[in-house]
Design a protein around this nucleic acid. Structure first.
Length: 480
RNA sequence: CGGGGCGUGGCUCAGCCUGGUAGAGCGCCUGGUUCGGGACCAGGAGGUCGGAGGUUCGAAUCCUCCCGCCCCGACCA
């Protein structure tokens, strides 16, 4: 064994995840910086593809990119009461700079509502300045107690959209539009099915009126909050005095939104598609879509094979793995671990027959195809793989979603679920949006993931805690 | 912060109990033979054994203190 083996998913799902990240050479723990990681080229390339998909959509919906300071005056956090309460436990604070104790410490941004609120106040005077639609690609720090690569690290990369509007209705439209954008990227780019829904009051963003999320199901059945979109109401507008004069001449506070997705998406991508052999990537997020491995024995074979390999690879946009001193077998394992969707094999036999062998990462199937058709076959395989991965994930989510009509039932389904052992389910149950109800679920470490925007079940029912009428079932699960 | 574990070449670890010239596998370098699912041979580079103190003729090994890291629990995109 040239490489240490990958722990199987059923042995220990959490260990499997670590192994896939490491063996896929996506990232490694920073070690010297607690809770942080180094994102390596293979991992960063995926992030760049995701960024591109998202950024294109942000711009198409009218947003412009900006950049705000990493450091925020500590007092800013305190201007919105719920916000400071929610974030203060996980803040990193700069108290000394330039060798001197600062008069007022700076916090390293955990999110930028406050500093952006400050600047919005400066830039917005009239209804003509609205809507203000900005996005920032940035890093943030949240001092988490327990970290896992990509899923939760002390420092992480994300984008945060921030908008200001004249009316609550308009702000709400943006909140839901961006949630749709996230769902679109999750499902059509990442091939990761999600449930769009509303967070409960106790799970909402600190300082928001309402939070919405997309929730995905990982292979161990745990939920992953993959993106959030918040209706901030006028909370930050009032805290930062962001006022504008309306058409009617009235001075009014703006209605704001914020929404974000992070490098956590990469963790979701891994836990949705990868297998016991390593990383599996949907073609749309594969930095390298196809690798051609040339096979030869003698020097005269080598020359002919390499010539053909480079010619074919150039036509179809594949990478040729012409490294010397590595056997073909070693190369197959190498690319398999890295999740390359298609590996092509070209050897003397193929040269003689005019064929080339096409192997898919998702199904493991090998098929000899005519060299003249390989471009079309590759495109078809990638397309089929993108759809196949989505369908497989969708089926899995359906198979692991169950209905429950009592708290006991929910508890018995979820109580023994863990990230390591798996067995997680999405339990659909009627439950009131009330912190007291959330608290009951917390007793066995489950949470309401969200209340789906679209009710795919049986409509109204009685709350499993209070017995009060509730208009639809919510998703209850254990989560990352 | 509570509970558990671990610090020895780049990586994974053995050696410690019972003190006596620092090892293995993988990786790396050089040369050659190989190559359709992790090739082989030969030669080679690389370690103040987490730190400090102590016991001893002699410490990776025994004793004391310190430091760091990982896992489990309480917080979270």
């Amino acid at each position: 064994m040239a490489q240490s083996p990958i722990t199987t998913r059923c042995d220990d799902f959490a260990a499997w995840y670590q192994d896939v990240v490491l063996q896929g050479d996506l990232a490694e723990p920073a070690e010297i910086v607690k809770g942080c990681m180094v994102i390596k080229p293979n991992g960063y390339a995926i992030w760049e593809l995701l960024q591109h998909e998202l950024d294109t959509r942000f711009k198409a919906t009218g947003h412009k990119n900006m950049y705000f300071p990493l450091l925020i005056p500590e007092s800013f956090l305190k201007k919105e009461a719920e916000h400071v309460e929610g974030f203060s436990p996980e803040l990193a604070v700069v108290t000394i700079a330039g060798g001197k104790k600062l008069e007022e410490p700076y916090v390293i941004r955990p999110t930028s509502e406050t500093i952006i609120g400050h600047f919005f106040a400066k830039w917005i005077q009239s209804w003509r300045d609205l809507p203000m639609l900005v996005n920032q690609w940035a890093n943030v720090i949240r001092w988490e107690l327990r970290t896992r690569m990509f899923l939760r690290t002390t420092e992480f990369l994300w984008q945060e959209g921030h908008t200001a509007h004249a009316t609550h209705e308009e702000a709400n439209e943006v909140v839901l539009r961006m949630l749709d954008v996230y769902a679109d990227v999750a499902e059509n780019v990442m091939a990761m099915p999600v449930i769009k829904g509303m967070k409960t009051q106790s799970e909402k963003f600190a300082g928001a009126l309402r939070s919405y999320s997309i929730e995905a199901m990982m292979q161990n059945g745990l939920a992953l909050q993959a993106g959030t979109s918040h209706d901030l109401g006028q909370n930050f507008g009032k805290a930062f005095d962001v006022q504008f004069q309306s058409k009617e001449g009235q001075l009014e506070y703006v209605w704001q939104t914020s929404w974000g997705v992070s490098t956590r998406l990469i963790g979701g991508l891994i836990m949705t598609h990868s297998d016991d052999k390593g990383l599996v990537l949907p073609p749309k997020l594969a930095p390298i879509k196809a690798v051609l491995v040339p096979i030869y024995r003698k020097d005269e074979e080598k020359a002919a094979v390499l010539e053909a390999a480079h010619r074919i690879a150039k036509e179809i946009g594949a990478k040729v793995d012409d490294r010397d001193g590595q056997s073909p077998g070693a190369k197959f394992f190498h690319w398999e671990r890295r999740g390359v969707p298609v590996v092509l094999e070209l050897g003397p036999r193929d040269l003689a027959s005019g064929k080339i062998v096409l192997k898919r990462r998702d199904t493991g199937t090998k098929e000899p195809v005519d060299q003249s058709e390989v471009g079309a076959k590759l495109a078809a395989a990638l397309d089929d793989m993108q759809k196949g991965l989505y369908n497989r994930a969708k089926d899995r989510m359906k198979a692991n979603t169950v209905l429950a009509n009592s708290l006991d039932e929910v508890e018995s389904i979820l109580k023994d679920v863990s990230a390591e052992k798996g067995g997680g389910k999405f339990v659909m149950a009627h439950i009131k949006d009330d912190p007291a109800c959330d608290a009951r679920l917390k007793e066995f470490k489950a949470t309401v993931r969200n209340i789906p925007l679209v009710d795919e079940y049986d409509g109204p029912g009685k709350c499993i805690v209070t017995g009060e009428p509730v208009d639809r079932r919510a998703v209850i699960a254990k989560s990352y």
